[in-house]
Amino acid sequence: MPEPHLRAADADRAAVVTRLDESLADGRLTLAEYEDRSARAHTARTYGELAELTADLPHPARPAPHPAAAAAYGGAWHGAWGNDLRAAWTSWLVTGVIVVGIWLVSMLGSGDLVYPWPVWVVGPWGVVLLARTLGERRGGRRPAA
């Protein structure tokens, strides 16, 4: 952990709360201890205040990989947002097939060219998914060999 007097970020506080969650689940903390420590973690200002909350807890045997590294090495489908991109793309595709099917049926039923409204359903969603996928593939750094 960096120098104790330096200011902690939201991500640092969240990491400590996650470690406290794991310690509660492992039986290392009572519920009262967990509640006290997690409340203090949310209000901590410095790294030193955060370090006090986990000083008596053992370090994890194997640290969890950084989300960007997990995206780069654990497969491009699992990324920094913790969501499964494969499921997101599958949902997008299924929704696209359904709305295009509805559009085609309505166009064939009316006999006229109907405004292609499905682009407003699948278009923006697809752009966001594409940006997210490309960002996660490019975001990871390779560890030193």
Rank of each mutant, 00 (worst) to 15 (best):
W89T: 07
A14M: 08
R137G: 15
H5A: 15
D84V: 10
G27K: 08
A80C: 08
V16A: 12
T95E: 04
L50M: 07
A72I: 01
V114N: 08
L113T: 10
R86D: 12
R28D: 14
L20W: 02
L104C: 06
L20S: 01
A80F: 07
R7I: 11
R142N: 08
L24S: 12
L20H: 00
E136L: 11
A80T: 03
S91N: 11
G75W: 00
I102N: 04
A25R: 08
M107Y: 06
Y115D: 13
A70N: 04
V128T: 11
W125C: 04
H78K: 00
A68I: 02
T54F: 01
D112I: 00
A25S: 06
V121G: 09
L29R: 06
R137H: 10
G48M: 15
H5N: 11
D56R: 02
E49Q: 15
P65C: 03
A145E: 14
E52M: 11
V99Q: 06
L108G: 12
L85N: 13
G82S: 11
R62Y: 08
G109Q: 14
A44V: 12
G75Y: 00
A32N: 13
R62M: 05
A11M: 06
T18K: 14
G123A: 09
A144C: 03
L93H: 02
Y115I: 14
V97K: 03
A71S: 03
D84R: 06
A70D: 08
G74W: 00
D21G: 00
L20Q: 04
A55S: 14
W117M: 06
D84L: 06
A8D: 13
A87L: 10
Y115F: 12
V121E: 01
R19Y: 02
V99D: 06
A32S: 08
G140Q: 00
P65A: 12
P118Y: 14
S38N: 07
E49R: 01
V99W: 08
A71F: 00
Y73Q: 12
A144L: 13
A8F: 04
Y34T: 01
V127H: 05
S91P: 01
G96E: 05
D112V: 07
E49Y: 12
G79P: 01
A71M: 01
D36S: 07
P58G: 06
P118H: 12
A32D: 15
P116A: 06
G101C: 12
S23C: 05
A61G: 15
A55T: 13
W125N: 14
W89P: 06
